[in-house]
């Protein structure tokens, strides 16, 4: 991966779920630079999830340019895009981030099972993935034995989100995307969680895209993107897809 200053580069991007269907996403231009912390603000149904699916390489745009870390995603096959995501992007979802039948530590090291790159990075300073997972969890104040050995669905939502953060950060992916990660947390915990996320992204030298509709969280971010300004397709569309996020 060549050293690129821009982590995300979008030009004239257009996306519809089916060829004949209405365009749900139309972005003339977007650039996010390395190390930036971006607050992407927009209401539900505005096409945010679609953009995230495009960035993740799960969906592909009908037209336009979409580069992540200098890589044109359209030029990759679906398998390569899946690998690309595994290697370079960490995700935190709104809720239900964890696999119920895995332990806390197993949940954290899950990305290393799918990406040898992240596995190697995670093992750069420690001997085992478990150690790295516990190191990250410790940073997030989650390395207590009562947390580590509990079934994940018995943990509080705040604890689950912090474990999800540790999973997004393990193996130092270049890009961390958090999709409404704080919407199920109360205000105090929100701020604490964002602080943790910032600190860990700094440590991992990762770029952060934080998606939310909550204006009260904007303050610490150095850059805010209004999604309805970004997506010119949204004005003539009903919010019908992906209403959940």
């Amino acid at each position: 991966m060549p050293e690129e200053t821009s982590v995300i580069e979008i030009a004239d991007l257009r996306f519809a779920w089916k060829k004949e269907a209405q365009t749900v996403l139309k972005i003339a231009s977007l650039q996010v630079n390395r190390g930036e912390r971006v607050f992407l603000r927009g209401p539900s149904g505005s096409g945010k999830s679609t953009l995230l699916n495009l960035l993740a390489g799960v969906a592909t745009p009908q037209s336009g340019m979409l580069k992540v870390l200098g890589q044109e995603l359209n030029a990759l096959g679906s398998a390569q895009r899946d690998h690309f995501r595994a290697h370079h992007i960490g995700f935190i979802f709104q809720m239900f981030n964890l696999i119920p039948y895995l332990s806390v530590v197993e949940n954290v090291i899950l990305p290393c099972q799918f990406s040898s790159k992240r596995k190697h990075k995670a093992l750069a300073q420690v001997d085992s993935l478990e150690q790295e997972a516990i190191r990250l969890l410790d940073h997030l104040d989650m390395a207590h034995s009562d947390v580590l050995h509990k079934p994940v669905n018995e943990l509080s939502v705040g604890q689950q989100q912090r474990i999800a953060a540790a999973r997004a950060l393990i193996g130092a992916p270049e890009l961390v995307i958090a999709d409404e990660p704080t919407s199920s947390l109360d205000a105090d915990r929100c701020t604490a969680f964002i602080d943790l996320l910032f600190r860990e992204c700094d440590n991992a030298n990762a770029t952060l895209i934080f998606v939310s509709h909550d204006n009260s969280l904007v303050a610490p971010f150095e850059r805010t993107i209004e999604f309805h300004e970004l997506n010119s397709a949204v004005s003539d569309n009903l919010p019908m897809l992906h209403a959940v996020s």
């Binding site: 899946d82 595994a86 290697h87 696999i99």
Partner: peptide
């Protein structure tokens, strides 16, 4: 969906 996000293929 979680598995997909960490890089699992369909």
């Amino acid at each position: 969906a979680i598995l997909r996000s960490v890089g699992a293929r369909p």
